[in-house]
Each structure stands twice: as C-alpha cells, then as structure tokens.
C-alpha cells in the first residue's frame, strides 16, 4: 500500500488536462442498481468530463443518490444491493472482475450528506487518516499534505492554530470542509458529493459552493443536490433524474443530461421543465 501513494509526480498535470478535455474521466454505461425487486437506477448512461462539476438533480426517491454511490462501489457494503452495467473510470470498468473496490475508492472519493469527521481524532489526524492508515508515516510529508488539503478546502486559516484539537469541536460547516479536506488528502481524481450542504446553514452553504469552483481545477466533481439554485450556481453540466409513473419499465430514470445553462434555459424534456419551473414558481 505504501507505494500506491507518492508525492513526486507533480509536473505532468498540465499536459493531462489538455488531452482530457475530449476524453471523459468517468462513464457509466447502462448502469442498473436494484434493491431486491426495487430497481432504483435504470439503464443510466452518462459521461463526466474532467475538471468539471456535474450536478445530479431530481425529486427525492429518483435514484440520484443511489446512482452516485454506485460510482465508487459504496453499494458493496449493502447486502441487498445489486449493480449491473459498467462504470468506466480511466478506461477501466470498476466493476470488472479482479478490481479492488478499495483501490477504486482511493481514486474516487466521497463527501456525505451529514459531516462525518472521525469522532475520536483531532483535526490533523482526520485529514491524515487516509494516508496514515495507508502506510505513510513520514512526518514532513504528512504535514505538507495536511496543510495543502486544508488550504484547498478553505479551512486552513481557521484551524491552523488548533490542528490538535478534536474535530468534533468544529462548526457544522467547518466539519464538512474538513471532510472535503480529508477526501482531498488521499489524492482522488474524482470527488462524489451527496447533498453536502443539506445539513448546513446558508452561510456555510455559500462557502462550500464557492469552494467547488476552485476545487474543480484540481479534481472532477459529481454532486447530488436537491437545491436547483445550487445546481445552477455550481455546475457545468446537469443530469435530471426522475422515477415516477411517467417513467415506463423499459425507460431509463435519467431523463435529461445537458449543459447546465442549456437545461435551465431550454429544457429538452417537458418533465424537466415542469420540475425546474415548478421549483422556481
């Protein structure tokens, strides 16, 4: 595990970015997720471009969170869940035989609805947890990554003087940014966010939204949100999910996937329009 993570590969990034523009970093192909007889995600195909923010929207129960959790194999933990189809990340199907879900999750991180810092650890240890437990022990290296991750999560200035105090002492918004820093520290290329601001107040929400714009320079983001304005503010592309009586058994519950501006100005599907205008009144 130790050599899976190294800090010496800085320079290639720019070159990678140019090439990446055309090439999706992640592509779901005919993805299905079911719990027992309940098909929560149906035939969803969707490609995510690198260094963008993609928003998944739709009413509750439409399968957007279930879809998100399929992208880094979190469903492996739920005995009843069955996933079919492909999720191609970096040219490899993460559901192929022999793929280690642990490796997948190192590269595709996740931030959850409610901030969930590790309760017994300090701020520093929370950010360093992923690296330490993966075998990185070198002090200087850890210090550097912790500072960088906290800075990228726009939390460094607020906590740099109390890195050793318990993470649970932070406010909700700070805790969520800490969780973002914790995810960034392992160096994922894709960050999945499941309604990351739903448990936060408007001010903390705003800070996180601002943060997303900066973060996408480093990492690709897929975010589930129930807040349409938020999707409009932060995302480049938006996917609209719906699972109600208008969706036939053979249809996909991904109704529409387009550039965010286009979808909000000129939705291609009547149901998308109803959802968007309904919310905006």
């Amino acid at each position: 595990m130790l050599d899976d993570v190294s800090v010496n590969g800085t320079p290639q990034a720019t070159g990678a970015e140019d090439r990446a523009a055309a090439q999706p970093i992640l592509e779901a192909r005919k993805l299905n997720v079911s719990y027992g007889s309940n098909r929560a995600v149906r035939d969803v195909s969707l490609a995510v471009q690198p260094n963008t923010v993609t928003a998944l929207i739709g009413p509750s129960g439409c399968g957007k969170t279930t879809f998100l959790r399929a992208l880094n194999r979190m469903h492996d933990l739920t005995p009843a869940a069955r996933v079919e189809g492909e999720v191609v990340f970096d040219g490899q199907d993460i559901y192929a035989r022999g793929v280690d879900p642990v490796e997948v999750r190192r590269r595709i991180g996740m931030v959850f609805q409610k901030p969930n810092p590790f309760p017994t650890m300090s701020i520093y240890d929370n950010v360093a947890a992923g690296l330490k437990l993966a075998g990185i022990r070198k002090r200087a290296q850890l210090d550097e990554i912790v500072e960088r991750s906290l800075s990228q999560a726009a939390l460094w200035d607020e906590v740099k003087d109390r890195l050793r105090s318990p993470a649970t002492g932070l406010s909700g918004g700070q805790q969520q940014r800490l969780c973002i820093a914790r995810s960034l520290a392992v160096g994922p290329r894709l960050l999945l966010m499941d309604e990351p601001t739903s448990a936060l107040d408007p001010q903390a929400t705003q800070r996180i939204e601002e943060l997303l714009g900066e973060l996408k320079q480093h990492v690709t983001i897929v975010i589930v949100t129930h807040n349409l304005q938020q999707a409009g503010r932060v995302s480049d592309k938006t996917a609209f999910f719906l699972l109600d009586e208008t969706v036939g058994p053979e249809d996909s519950n991904l109704i529409e996937y387009a550039e965010t501006d286009q979808m909000f100005m000129n939705p291609g599907d009547a149901r998308t329009e109803a959802y968007i205008t309904g919310r905006f009144g």
Binding site: N72, M74, L77, V102, E103, V104, R105, R106, R107, G109, M110, V111, F112, K114, N116, P117, F118, P119, T120, M121, A129, G130, L133, A134, C179, R182, S183, V186, P188, L192
Partner: peptide
Amino acid sequence: PQSVREAGLALGLARWRVTLFIVLPAAV
C-alpha cells in the same frame, strides 16, 4: 454511526483498517 464506516471506506481504506483503526477507537 454507519457514516463513520462509510467515511473511512470512501477514503479508499480497506475494511479491516477502517474497523481496526477508526471504528474500534470510536468504541473503545
């Protein structure tokens, strides 16, 4: 809370490490 286990797994940690070094300390 289950969220603590999920947070650990989402960092790409193996399950045994999550159990031994994150869940167990929270319950010690």
